[in-house]
Design a protein around this nucleic acid. Structure first.
Lengths: 172, 172
DNA sequence: TATTGTTATACTCTATAACTATA
DNA sequence: TATAGTTATAGAGTATAACAATA
């Protein structure tokens, strides 16, 4: 009923910015820039959603060569910083469903970036570790992620980016 | 390949905050608050994603009684402020796929909030209007949305919310 | 009994292509 | 030919429930 999905996924348009409209008389439906957004502009959620679309698109574009999404990056980073973590712990920490993390890890394990090691103390759980290759790769991913972060700074300004991080520091 | 979906949907946990862990000795996987987030904290995208999850959850919770999602609200608001707009125009303006907007409008039309009127000048397109009931309802939705916005201000601070809107004002 | 990881199902959203009716 | 709206399909993500192994 109220458990509704309200996406913020992405979309990297192939024909970005191209194709405006050749000639002919402009029709009322055409002047998209003149469309009134009304109250929407006063809503933090709207701005944040649009910003997140941009930021995720840029992240994916910047890390396209290594084929790593923001979610994959966050999983790798947390495992790298906390070797031996269980799947439950990673899922809770990042707010990912544990059922979904299974598939994410399947993929990362197939790519030899992560390994699951059966815990000896609690054989129900898996201790998560980066592989040697995963450790090396993550270093490269971090360089690219830093580049993405510079794009953010360019887009909204260095000072503004820092203020943003400060304002949202409570959401970890 | 790089056109990947990197969600930010939501999840309103039924058992919010409950169920921690009764007794027994704490296990290494249990101290979620001690888990190192490493570089993630320096990324605007991570903070923004977490913030958006919170904000959408609160929006949905606050408008649960009227069963309106952020996306539905944005569509209604734009139509209300720009009567006669075509579906293409709304879709472009809000960054919604036109194929998806069809279903969104089907639902809003079923609920008698919106009506599609065949354009007389271009019979391919529909001019979108709020119904009388839609106009009345939207006023109520806006009151609830304003209440949601106050929650945001309480959460991050009045000043911070205004700074946020200013920083992200470019993303419309 | 409870928890971890897993599998499975239903639903939402994105991306895409194709179809129709108009232009 | 091109465009607006529609329909359909595939993939990603969320929400849930159920199951096996283990605690």
């Amino acid at each position: 009923m109220s458990n509704r999905a309200t996406q913020a996924t992405l979309k990297i348009p192939k024909n970005s910015g191209a194709k405006r409209r050749a000639g002919g008389k402009p029709r009322p439906t055409d002047n998209s820039s003149a469309i009134e957004l009304d109250g929407l502009l006063g809503h933090a959620g709207y701005a944040v959603r649009r910003f997140q679309l941009w930021i995720f698109q840029d992240f994916i574009r910047t890390l396209a060569a290594v084929d790593i999404t923001p979610t994959q990056y966050s999983v790798l980073t947390v495992i790298g910083a906390n070797p031996g973590l269980s799947q439950m712990a990673v899922a809770q920490r990042l707010g990912i469903e544990r059922a979904r993390l299974v598939h994410l890890l399947d993929s990362l394990e197939d790519r030899k970036l992560v390994k699951r090691i059966r815990s000896r103390t609690d054989r129900r759980s898996h201790a998560l570790h980066l592989t040697a290759q995963g450790t090396v790769s993550l270093r490269q991913f971090k360089l690219l992620a830093a580049e993405h972060e510079r794009h953010v700074a360019e887009k909204i300004g260095k000072e503004n980016r820092e203020q943003l991080l400060r304002i949202l520091s409570g959401f970890t």
